[in-house]
Design a binder for these strands. Structure first.
Lengths: 226, 226
DNA sequence: CATAAGGCAAGAGCAGTGCTCTCGTTTTAG
DNA sequence: CTAAAACGAGAGCACTGCTCTTGCCTTATG
């Protein structure tokens, strides 16, 4: 689509990549609050003003890093999945991959699931990138059909209608009841990971591995994966 | 214990309070990243250097706000609880209060459950303040005994031992199995609230009320509250 | 091939920040 | 009453994001 033609374009692409790389490096050492365009420029031996040819503002750089991080997390989750395996096994693999990636890249994870950066959020690009894990989990639920009904817990009308609309709009092929289960285990998964990465389990489930594995199984139960 | 004696002490206490108040005001408008000591000083008509007589650094101010926020959230949760009501009802009340407080004070909530501020976390004062909601939920579980056993899901040995140690150290009076359930519904509750406050449900469970109420009931199921 | 146009790096500069130090003044305690 | 401590204000340092201007160099066009 946008192939690189001239030497200038090649240089631009390389420098853009180097800037993000260095920014990611600084991010992993001190967090997004400490990330400064000037220090990135210094590390790359260029004038601070030159960075603005590549990223119009600090927030834009962060947004680019966020998109890359969503991609990396999605890649990790999808790469760990084994589409031929039993759904319950697949669920455990994806959950484990998400957790591992988050623990290995806490500051990038914080960019995605921590306090939102003031300026950015709205851009629609992030939602597509951000729902990769969710979509994959949805596919696992589909593969797990027929789901274990579990306790009878009918949806209230308002929720049922809302979920029906979302399932149709997103073309997920899930019933409102299934989508509800999906959203709940999805948020539970990231709630767990967030608590671990942000140190909320520090005095209790510390290390969090055993609790996490137990939780993954309970979430599979709840989702109805056999 | 530390009564205010002199006029100077009174003035100091008042000014400390006013600084936090103004800081909270700015926080609620733009988030912690935008909070600046200088602007707080300006709003209070004092020199920026004078603030440092009251808070030795920006991070210390933020830590003070964090402690206050933990208190406010704990107050909201405990205030909504009705110790005489049925445990399941109590659980719903506490969950609803947490959610309401979070939605009403998103930036303060972000201070507590969002990306950790680089410098602070460790201080032990925060854990006591931070576990108020957790402790209250634990009391509700206790009041709900005997809990519904639900699906048989024995704890692995490592998790069992870990939970046994924590339950004893924290003097919770819960079995390892009960504590595990508690930690899971606790993290699930805050996972849900965090997703809602940070806009992660934006294209799906939006508004999040119906899903939240459904989730609260499912968490009560899981916890074993009848 | 020459020339005009646009991309580019660099420097100076502005407004803002956290934080420190010093200097008078005021309040407290002995 | 006096010495000590607390205090407010101002200047100043090092840093930040961001803008503007200047001059160079790579493109694309005639």
């Amino acid at each position: 689509m946008n192939a690189i033609r001239t030497a200038r374009e090649r240089a631009r692409a390389e420098l853009t990549h180097e800037i993000k790389q260095e920014a990611r490096r600084q991010l992993s050492e001190a967090g997004s609050a400490q990330l400064s365009l000037r220090s990135v420029a210094r590390a790359l031996g260029m004038a601070s003003s030159a960075i603005y040819r590549y990223f119009p503002s600090r927030d834009e750089l962060l947004t680019a890093l966020i998109l890359d991080a969503y991609d990396a997390l999605g890649e990790a989750a999808e790469g760990a999945d084994l589409p031929q395996a039993a759904p319950r096994e697949r669920w455990a693999l994806v959950c484990g991959a998400v957790r591992e990636w988050a623990v290995a890249h806490p500051h990038e994870y914080a960019l995605l699931y921590g306090t939102p950066v003031p300026g950015y959020r709205a851009p629609v690009e992030t939602v597509a990138a951000g729902t990769r894990v969710l979509r994959r989990c949805g596919e696992i639920l589909l593969a797990g059909r027929p789901l274990d009904p579990g306790l009878p817990a009918p949806l209230e009308e308002e929720l049922d209608e809302q979920m029906r609309g979302v399932a149709e709009a997103a073309d997920l092929g899930l019933t409102p009841e299934e989508l509800t289960r999906l959203l709940l285990v999805w948020s539970q998964l990231f709630g767990l990971v967030t608590f671990e990465v942000f140190g909320q389990f520090n005095g209790s489930a510390d290390p969090a591995g055993p609790l996490f594995r137990h939780a993954v199984a309970r979430m599979a139960d709840f989702a109805g994966l056999r």
